[in-house]
Protein backbone atom coordinates (compact mmCIF):
# COMPACT_ATOMS: atom_id res chain seq x y z
CA UNK A 1 0.00 0.00 0.00
CA UNK A 2 1.32 3.38 -0.98
CA UNK A 3 0.24 6.60 0.69
CA UNK A 4 -1.74 8.53 -1.89
CA UNK A 5 -2.79 11.40 0.36
CA UNK A 6 -2.01 14.93 -0.73
CA UNK A 7 -2.61 18.37 0.74
CA UNK A 8 -3.88 21.55 -0.88
CA UNK A 9 -3.55 24.32 1.68
CA UNK A 10 -4.96 22.86 4.89
CA UNK A 11 -7.19 20.46 3.03
CA UNK A 12 -6.15 16.82 2.88
CA UNK A 13 -7.30 14.68 -0.06
CA UNK A 14 -7.50 10.88 0.09
CA UNK A 15 -5.63 10.71 -3.21
CA UNK A 16 -4.54 13.10 -5.98
CA UNK A 17 -7.34 12.32 -8.45
CA UNK A 18 -10.17 14.82 -8.76
CA UNK A 19 -12.96 14.84 -11.34
CA UNK A 20 -12.91 18.07 -13.37
CA UNK A 21 -15.75 20.56 -13.41
CA UNK A 22 -18.20 20.18 -16.25
CA UNK A 23 -17.33 16.54 -16.81
CA UNK A 24 -18.88 14.84 -13.78
CA UNK A 25 -22.18 16.67 -13.38
CA UNK A 26 -22.99 16.69 -9.66
CA UNK A 27 -21.43 13.28 -9.12
CA UNK A 28 -24.72 11.39 -8.94
CA UNK A 29 -24.66 10.86 -12.72
CA UNK A 30 -21.63 8.59 -12.26
CA UNK A 31 -22.77 6.65 -9.20
CA UNK A 32 -23.89 3.61 -11.22
CA UNK A 33 -20.29 3.21 -12.35
CA UNK A 34 -18.02 4.33 -9.53
CA UNK A 35 -17.89 4.83 -5.81
CA UNK A 36 -17.23 8.56 -5.48
CA UNK A 37 -15.56 8.03 -2.10
CA UNK A 38 -12.66 6.34 -3.90
CA UNK A 39 -11.74 9.69 -5.49
CA UNK A 40 -9.75 12.54 -4.03
CA UNK A 41 -12.61 14.84 -4.86
CA UNK A 42 -15.07 16.05 -7.44
CA UNK A 43 -15.49 19.54 -8.82
CA UNK A 44 -19.12 20.01 -9.68
CA UNK A 45 -20.49 21.86 -12.66
CA UNK A 46 -19.63 25.52 -13.19
CA UNK A 47 -22.04 27.53 -11.05
CA UNK A 48 -23.25 31.10 -11.36
CA UNK A 49 -25.47 33.34 -9.23
CA UNK A 50 -28.24 33.22 -11.80
CA UNK A 51 -29.82 30.41 -13.81
CA UNK A 52 -28.15 30.05 -17.22
CA UNK A 53 -29.33 28.20 -20.30
CA UNK A 54 -25.91 28.08 -21.93
CA UNK A 55 -25.27 28.38 -25.65
CA UNK A 56 -27.53 27.06 -28.42
CA UNK A 57 -27.07 23.58 -29.90
CA UNK A 58 -24.76 22.47 -31.55
CA UNK A 59 -22.31 22.80 -28.69
CA UNK A 60 -19.95 19.95 -29.40
CA UNK A 61 -17.73 18.72 -32.17
CA UNK A 62 -15.48 15.69 -32.13
CA UNK A 63 -11.94 16.41 -33.26
CA UNK A 64 -8.79 14.39 -33.77
CA UNK A 65 -8.09 12.91 -30.32
CA UNK A 66 -10.41 15.29 -28.58
CA UNK A 67 -13.50 17.43 -28.72
CA UNK A 68 -14.62 21.01 -28.82
CA UNK A 69 -17.38 22.18 -26.51
CA UNK A 70 -19.27 25.42 -26.22
CA UNK A 71 -21.68 24.59 -23.41
CA UNK A 72 -21.44 28.06 -21.90
CA UNK A 73 -21.94 27.35 -18.19
CA UNK A 74 -25.47 25.99 -18.34
CA UNK A 75 -26.58 25.65 -14.72
CA UNK A 76 -29.60 26.37 -12.54
CA UNK A 77 -27.96 29.05 -10.39
CA UNK A 78 -26.87 29.13 -6.75
CA UNK A 79 -30.38 29.26 -5.20
CA UNK A 80 -31.39 26.03 -6.91
CA UNK A 81 -28.01 24.52 -6.15
CA UNK A 82 -28.23 25.29 -2.46
CA UNK A 83 -31.80 24.06 -2.09
CA UNK A 84 -31.89 21.01 -4.35
CA UNK A 85 -28.37 19.79 -5.02
CA UNK A 86 -26.26 20.71 -2.01
CA UNK A 87 -28.16 18.49 0.50
CA UNK A 88 -27.28 15.44 -1.60
CA UNK A 89 -23.66 16.54 -2.12
CA UNK A 90 -23.24 16.99 1.63
CA UNK A 91 -23.63 13.20 2.02
CA UNK A 92 -20.72 12.33 -0.29
CA UNK A 93 -17.63 10.92 1.34
CA UNK A 94 -15.28 12.78 -0.94
CA UNK A 95 -14.33 16.44 -1.19
CA UNK A 96 -16.93 18.32 -3.18
CA UNK A 97 -15.61 21.52 -4.71
CA UNK A 98 -17.71 24.10 -6.55
CA UNK A 99 -16.47 25.79 -9.72
CA UNK A 100 -17.36 29.48 -9.38
CA UNK A 101 -18.20 31.77 -12.32
CA UNK A 102 -19.51 35.24 -12.88
CA UNK A 103 -19.91 38.11 -15.30
CA UNK A 104 -18.41 40.66 -12.93
CA UNK A 105 -16.14 40.77 -9.90
CA UNK A 106 -19.23 41.40 -7.77
CA UNK A 107 -20.77 38.16 -9.11
CA UNK A 108 -17.67 36.16 -8.19
CA UNK A 109 -17.59 37.75 -4.74
CA UNK A 110 -21.30 37.24 -4.01
CA UNK A 111 -21.20 33.63 -5.14
CA UNK A 112 -18.01 32.84 -3.21
CA UNK A 113 -19.57 34.37 -0.09
CA UNK A 114 -22.66 32.19 -0.51
CA UNK A 115 -20.59 29.04 -0.94
CA UNK A 116 -18.40 29.99 2.02
CA UNK A 117 -21.43 29.34 4.24
CA UNK A 118 -21.91 25.78 2.93
CA UNK A 119 -20.08 23.64 5.46
CA UNK A 120 -19.80 20.56 3.21
CA UNK A 121 -17.99 22.47 0.47
CA UNK A 122 -14.36 22.75 1.66
CA UNK A 123 -13.02 24.57 -1.41
CA UNK A 124 -13.92 26.52 -4.51
CA UNK A 125 -12.31 26.56 -7.91
CA UNK A 126 -12.39 30.10 -9.21
CA UNK A 127 -13.04 29.76 -12.92
CA UNK A 128 -11.42 32.70 -14.66
CA UNK A 129 -10.86 30.65 -17.78
CA UNK A 130 -14.16 29.60 -19.37
CA UNK A 131 -13.77 30.33 -23.10
CA UNK A 132 -17.47 29.98 -23.92
CA UNK A 133 -19.11 33.00 -22.31
CA UNK A 134 -19.36 36.55 -23.63
CA UNK A 135 -18.79 38.17 -20.24
CA UNK A 136 -16.51 37.10 -17.40
CA UNK A 137 -14.73 33.77 -17.61
CA UNK A 138 -11.63 33.87 -19.75
CA UNK A 139 -11.75 37.67 -19.94
CA UNK A 140 -10.57 37.72 -16.31
CA UNK A 141 -8.10 34.92 -16.89
CA UNK A 142 -6.28 36.46 -19.83
CA UNK A 143 -5.72 39.94 -18.40
CA UNK A 144 -3.25 40.07 -15.49
CA UNK A 145 -4.79 43.15 -13.84
CA UNK A 146 -8.33 41.71 -14.01
CA UNK A 147 -7.14 38.35 -12.73
CA UNK A 148 -5.47 39.99 -9.76
CA UNK A 149 -8.53 42.07 -9.00
CA UNK A 150 -10.98 39.16 -8.98
CA UNK A 151 -8.71 36.83 -6.98
CA UNK A 152 -8.01 39.60 -4.46
CA UNK A 153 -11.72 40.35 -4.07
CA UNK A 154 -12.73 36.71 -3.65
CA UNK A 155 -9.89 36.01 -1.23
CA UNK A 156 -11.22 38.74 1.08
CA UNK A 157 -14.61 37.03 1.44
CA UNK A 158 -13.72 33.35 1.07
CA UNK A 159 -11.82 31.79 3.95
CA UNK A 160 -11.61 28.14 2.89
CA UNK A 161 -9.42 26.56 0.22
CA UNK A 162 -9.24 28.70 -2.90
CA UNK A 163 -8.11 27.14 -6.17
CA UNK A 164 -7.77 29.35 -9.27
CA UNK A 165 -8.41 27.64 -12.61
CA UNK A 166 -6.13 29.10 -15.26
CA UNK A 167 -6.62 29.59 -18.97
CA UNK A 168 -4.01 28.25 -21.39
CA UNK A 169 -5.01 30.94 -23.89
CA UNK A 170 -2.26 33.31 -22.78
CA UNK A 171 1.34 33.93 -23.77
CA UNK A 172 2.78 33.21 -20.33
CA UNK A 173 0.64 31.16 -18.00
CA UNK A 174 3.19 31.41 -15.18
CA UNK A 175 2.34 35.10 -14.82
CA UNK A 176 -1.24 34.20 -13.88
CA UNK A 177 -0.06 31.47 -11.53
CA UNK A 178 2.21 33.94 -9.73
CA UNK A 179 -0.64 36.42 -9.44
CA UNK A 180 -2.83 33.70 -7.94
CA UNK A 181 -0.15 32.87 -5.40
CA UNK A 182 0.47 36.53 -4.53
CA UNK A 183 -3.24 37.12 -3.96
CA UNK A 184 -3.47 34.23 -1.54
CA UNK A 185 -4.82 31.28 -3.53
CA UNK A 186 -3.99 27.91 -2.00
CA UNK A 187 -3.54 26.29 -5.43
CA UNK A 188 -3.88 26.74 -9.16
CA UNK A 189 -5.49 24.25 -11.52
CA UNK A 190 -4.49 24.18 -15.16
CA UNK A 191 -5.35 24.03 -17.93
CA UNK A 192 -8.89 24.89 -18.90
CA UNK A 193 -9.72 24.25 -22.56
CA UNK A 194 -7.90 25.75 -25.50
CA UNK A 195 -9.89 28.07 -27.72
CA UNK A 196 -10.50 26.32 -31.03
CA UNK A 197 -13.00 25.87 -33.85
CA UNK A 198 -14.15 23.56 -36.61
CA UNK A 199 -15.93 24.09 -39.93
CA UNK A 200 -18.37 21.69 -41.61
CA UNK A 201 -17.21 21.80 -45.22
CA UNK A 202 -20.43 20.15 -46.49
CA UNK A 203 -22.71 22.85 -45.08
CA UNK A 204 -19.97 25.51 -45.23
CA UNK A 205 -20.92 26.52 -41.69
CA UNK A 206 -19.05 26.48 -38.37
CA UNK A 207 -19.66 23.24 -36.47
CA UNK A 208 -20.42 25.11 -33.22
CA UNK A 209 -23.25 27.61 -32.77
CA UNK A 210 -20.74 29.95 -31.13
CA UNK A 211 -18.15 29.38 -33.88
CA UNK A 212 -15.36 28.97 -31.32
CA UNK A 213 -15.25 26.54 -28.40
CA UNK A 214 -12.90 24.89 -25.95
CA UNK A 215 -10.69 22.00 -27.03
CA UNK A 216 -10.13 19.16 -24.59
CA UNK A 217 -8.93 15.57 -24.67
CA UNK A 218 -5.61 13.90 -25.50
CA UNK A 219 -5.05 16.42 -28.31
CA UNK A 220 -4.08 19.04 -25.71
CA UNK A 221 -2.12 16.85 -23.32
CA UNK A 222 1.46 17.65 -24.36
CA UNK A 223 0.77 21.39 -24.27
CA UNK A 224 -1.06 21.16 -20.94
CA UNK A 225 1.77 19.11 -19.51
CA UNK A 226 4.33 21.68 -20.61
CA UNK A 227 2.33 24.45 -18.94
CA UNK A 228 1.97 22.47 -15.71
CA UNK A 229 5.70 21.87 -15.66
CA UNK A 230 6.39 25.60 -16.21
CA UNK A 231 3.95 26.67 -13.51
CA UNK A 232 5.18 24.10 -10.99
CA UNK A 233 8.65 25.63 -11.31
CA UNK A 234 7.32 29.19 -11.05
CA UNK A 235 5.19 28.97 -7.88
CA UNK A 236 5.42 27.27 -4.50
CA UNK A 237 1.69 26.61 -4.04
CA UNK A 238 0.38 23.23 -5.23
CA UNK A 239 -0.44 22.82 -8.90
CA UNK A 240 -3.39 20.69 -9.99
CA UNK A 241 -2.71 19.43 -13.50
CA UNK A 242 -5.31 18.64 -16.12
CA UNK A 243 -5.67 18.47 -19.87
CA UNK A 244 -6.23 15.25 -21.77
CA UNK A 245 -5.56 12.81 -18.94
CA UNK A 246 -7.08 9.49 -20.06
CA UNK A 247 -5.28 6.95 -17.87
CA UNK A 248 -2.89 6.48 -14.97
CA UNK A 249 0.18 6.89 -17.15
CA UNK A 250 -1.04 10.32 -18.29
CA UNK A 251 -1.75 11.28 -14.67
CA UNK A 252 1.72 10.13 -13.59
CA UNK A 253 3.28 12.32 -16.29
CA UNK A 254 1.59 15.38 -14.81
CA UNK A 255 2.60 14.40 -11.27
CA UNK A 256 6.20 13.78 -12.30
CA UNK A 257 6.22 17.16 -14.07
CA UNK A 258 5.25 18.84 -10.80
CA UNK A 259 1.49 18.49 -10.26
CA UNK A 260 0.48 17.74 -6.67
CA UNK A 261 -2.88 16.50 -7.92
CA UNK A 262 -4.60 15.91 -11.23
CA UNK A 263 -8.07 16.36 -12.63
CA UNK A 264 -9.74 13.90 -14.96
CA UNK A 265 -12.20 15.50 -17.35
CA UNK A 266 -13.13 14.49 -20.89
CA UNK A 267 -11.94 10.91 -20.20
CA UNK A 268 -15.09 10.33 -18.11
CA UNK A 269 -17.24 10.87 -21.21
CA UNK A 270 -15.74 7.77 -22.80
CA UNK A 271 -14.99 5.80 -19.65
CA UNK A 272 -17.05 6.89 -16.64
CA UNK A 273 -14.74 4.80 -14.48
CA UNK A 274 -11.61 6.66 -15.66
CA UNK A 275 -11.18 8.55 -12.36
CA UNK A 276 -11.18 5.55 -10.07
CA UNK A 277 -9.15 3.46 -12.52
CA UNK A 278 -6.49 6.18 -12.48
CA UNK A 279 -6.39 6.09 -8.67
CA UNK A 280 -5.78 2.34 -8.88
CA UNK A 281 -3.17 2.74 -11.59
CA UNK A 282 -1.19 5.34 -9.64
CA UNK A 283 -1.17 3.14 -6.56
CA UNK A 284 -0.10 0.10 -8.58
CA UNK A 285 2.76 2.07 -10.11
CA UNK A 286 4.01 3.22 -6.71
CA UNK A 287 3.83 -0.30 -5.27
CA UNK A 288 5.73 -1.69 -8.25
CA UNK A 289 8.39 0.98 -7.82
CA UNK A 290 8.48 0.24 -4.09
CA UNK A 291 7.67 3.84 -3.26
CA UNK A 292 5.69 4.52 -0.12
CA UNK A 293 4.11 7.83 -1.10
CA UNK A 294 2.94 9.69 -4.16
CA UNK A 295 4.98 12.65 -2.89
CA UNK A 296 8.09 10.65 -3.84
CA UNK A 297 7.39 11.32 -7.49
CA UNK A 298 5.81 14.79 -7.39
CA UNK A 299 7.97 16.93 -9.65
CA UNK A 300 10.59 14.20 -9.83
CA UNK A 301 11.72 15.25 -13.31
CA UNK A 302 12.82 18.59 -11.87
CA UNK A 303 15.02 17.04 -9.17
CA UNK A 304 17.67 15.56 -11.42
Amino acid sequence: MADLRIKIGQLEFRNPVILASGTCGYGSELEDFINLSELGGIIVKGTTLEHREGNPYPRMSETASGMLNAVGLQNKGIDYFEKNIYPHLAEYKTHVIVNVNGNTIEDYVDLSQRINTLSAIPAIELNISCPNVKKGGMIFGTNPASAREVIYAVRRVYDKTLIVKLSPNVTDITEFARISQEEGAEAVSLVNTFLGMAVDVRTMRPKLSTITGGLSGPAIKPVALRMVWQVARAVSIPVIGLGGIMNAEDALEFIMAGATAVQVGTASFINPRAGTEIVGGIEKFLVEKEMDSVSNITGIINRI
Binding site: G22, T23, C24, G25, E29, L30, G54, P56, Y57, P58, R59, M60, S61, E62, M67, N69, V71, Q74, S268, F269, P272
Partner: peptide, 17 residues
Protein backbone atom coordinates in the same frame (compact mmCIF):
# COMPACT_ATOMS: atom_id res chain seq x y z
CA UNK B 1 -30.79 11.87 -32.38
CA UNK B 2 -28.80 14.88 -31.20
CA UNK B 3 -25.04 14.97 -31.43
CA UNK B 4 -23.77 13.65 -28.13
CA UNK B 5 -20.50 13.21 -26.26
CA UNK B 6 -21.12 11.33 -23.01
CA UNK B 7 -24.67 9.96 -23.04
CA UNK B 8 -24.71 10.29 -19.26
CA UNK B 9 -25.89 13.87 -18.69
CA UNK B 10 -22.47 15.15 -17.64
CA UNK B 11 -21.23 17.02 -20.72
CA UNK B 12 -24.42 19.00 -21.48
CA UNK B 13 -23.66 18.96 -25.21
CA UNK B 14 -26.75 17.25 -26.64
CA UNK B 15 -29.28 19.76 -25.37
CA UNK B 16 -32.63 20.46 -26.95
CA UNK B 17 -34.71 23.57 -26.23
Amino acid sequence: ENLMACGLGICLCCVVP
